[in-house]
């Protein structure tokens, strides 16, 4: 039990400190690395409470894909300098009220959830709705998602698909005058159309590039 507590506090301290460092570090790339550390320690916490499926999905989706794209964008755009201005410039005071409002909202939401958990435990009693403890975490998750919540699950999938298509459509632009590589054309090229053998007369040369 003591070992459990030690691991719990280690992971949560790392999670909190790295979350603070995401906003506090001056280099944007460092921020993303701290974000990754945060994700990893949170997925460790998930695994510790027995939600191993969520923890692994967190690792695969957030650390393995989302954070890689973050890192990609941050490195490509070289936004390291902009972040300093964001903190030190006059602009920063304008963003404080908005940030405060959002963080108070999130705070109250958490209070509501925790309050409900504390005073109405039967709402959150997992053992009533979900099947027995004997089956594994992944099985019970699947049994709920694909039976009771199938429509919600499908709709959220559709929304994600629409969002993806929308993002592609918004950023897609057809540029003219770009030389495109067509692999079919490249593979199906024959010797006859690629090479031409000419009789070259002395002191005359041949005209190419017509």
């Amino acid at each position: 039990m003591i070992a459990h507590a030690i691991f719990f506090y280690t992971f949560s301290i790392i999670a909190v400190v790295s979350a603070i460092m995401v906003t506090a570090s001056k280099n944007t790339v460092h921020s993303v690395f701290f974000l990754i550390l945060d994700f990893i320690s949170i997925s460790c916490l998930f695994i510790m409470i027995g939600a191993e499926f969520l923890g692994m999905i967190m690792l695969i989706v957030y650390v393995g894909a989302v954070a890689v794209l973050f890192l990609f964008v941050v490195m490509m755009l070289n936004v390291a300098q902009q972040k300093n201005q964001w903190f030190a410039g006059e602009q920063s005071s304008r963003h404080i009220p908005v940030g405060l409002i959002i963080s108070t909202l999130i705070f109250f939401e958490i209070i509501i959830v925790i309050g409900g958990w504390k005073y109405k435990p039967e709402i959150f009693d997992i053992n009533n709705s979900i099947a027995q403890i004997s089956i594994s975490n992944t099985h019970s998750l699947g049994q709920i998602l694909y039976t009771d919540y199938i429509h919600v699950f499908q709709i959220s999938g559709m929304i994600l698909l629409v969002a993806m298509v929308g993002a592609i459509v918004l950023t897609f632009r057809q540029r003219s005058g770009v030389k495109r590589q067509s692999y079919i054309k490249q593979i199906s090229r024959e010797r006859a159309e690629g090479v031409e053998v000419l009789e070259v007369q002395s002191n005359k040369g041949v005209k190419i590039d017509d």
Partner: peptide, 23 residues
């Protein structure tokens, strides 16, 4: 229980060594 997911997660994290080294 989630052995294959663990393998997949670890192999997908492998990209970080390369990105970190390159950057």
């Amino acid at each position: 229980n989630v052995g294959i997911l663990y393998l997949f997660a670890v192999s997908s994290l492998g990209v970080y060594g390369i990105i970190m080294g390159g950057w």
